[in-house]
């Protein structure tokens, strides 16, 4: 464990909690893409199956349970509890165009052709594009609530910090996972446009960002 990975995990946790609290407190999921949240729940489910088979550390197990729990709680709030506030007309990204290619790629490019490994690879590839429905929805509505932009900032920051963690681990431990690194670079690049808006608009104090 190193500081970059720890801050990355805490940034990820912050994003997940910010979103869950935002929906719970405002009793509304307006502006939130339910499709992205379903994809994240799928990412955690396929990646953390090893919860059932192995124990790495208390930290590892606790965080995985929190991530899965919050992901499903968020999906529940969006599609069940506060369904009336779900903006289905703007959450129209065709997720099958993500899941099918990612599923195919996971079978073609992986470290080991075992079920657990293929599911892990699928989850890594899926996570790199899971935010697209959310970014697409914001571009369609033309705006995002401030709290949603903080959610996206911490979510984007987490994988950027993981990239630094992988540099650190390569240099100090010789650890190197090409699949996670390439997917992590793609994932972080997808946020670049948003990061630029977040920083520039954030300074002007405007309460909404308007992606191009």
């Amino acid at each position: 464990m190193n500081i970059f990975r720890l801050t990355g995990d805490l940034s990820h946790l912050a994003a997940i909690i910010i979103l869950l609290l935002k929906i719970w407190k405002t009793r509304s999921c307006a502006g939130i893409s339910g499709k992205s949240q379903v994809l994240f729940a799928l990412v955690f489910t396929t990646r953390y199956l090893d919860l059932l088979t192995s124990f790495i550390s208390l930290y590892n197990t606790t965080m995985k349970i929190i991530y899965i729990g919050c992901a499903y709680a968020t999906v529940y709030l969006i599609y069940m509890k506060f369904k009336a506030t779900y903006d289905g007309n703007h959450d129209t990204f065709r997720v099958e165009f993500l899941v099918v290619p990612v599923g195919g790629l996971a079978f073609l490019v992986n470290h080991d052709f075992s079920p657990l490994e293929i599911l892990w690879t699928f989850s890594i590839y899926l996570e790199s594009v899971a935010i697209l429905p959310q970014l697409f929805m914001i571009s369609k509505t033309g705006e995002a609530e401030t709290i949603t932009t903080h959610y996206l900032f911490f979510l984007g920051l987490y994988r950027a910090l993981y990239l630094i963690n992988w540099i650190w681990r390569f240099y100090f431990e010789g650890f190197f996972d090409m699949i996670a690194i390439v997917a992590g670079v793609v994932q972080t690049i997808l946020y670049c446009d948003f990061f630029y808006l977040y920083v520039t608009k954030g300074e002007s104090g405007s309460n909404k960002i308007n992606p191009a």
């Binding site: 090893d50 590892n60 965080m63 075992s114 490994e117 993981y162």
Partner: peptide, 10 residues
Amino acid sequence: REFTSLHDEL
């Protein structure tokens, strides 16, 4: 290749 030794990250 042991799965857990490879994937000890979240």
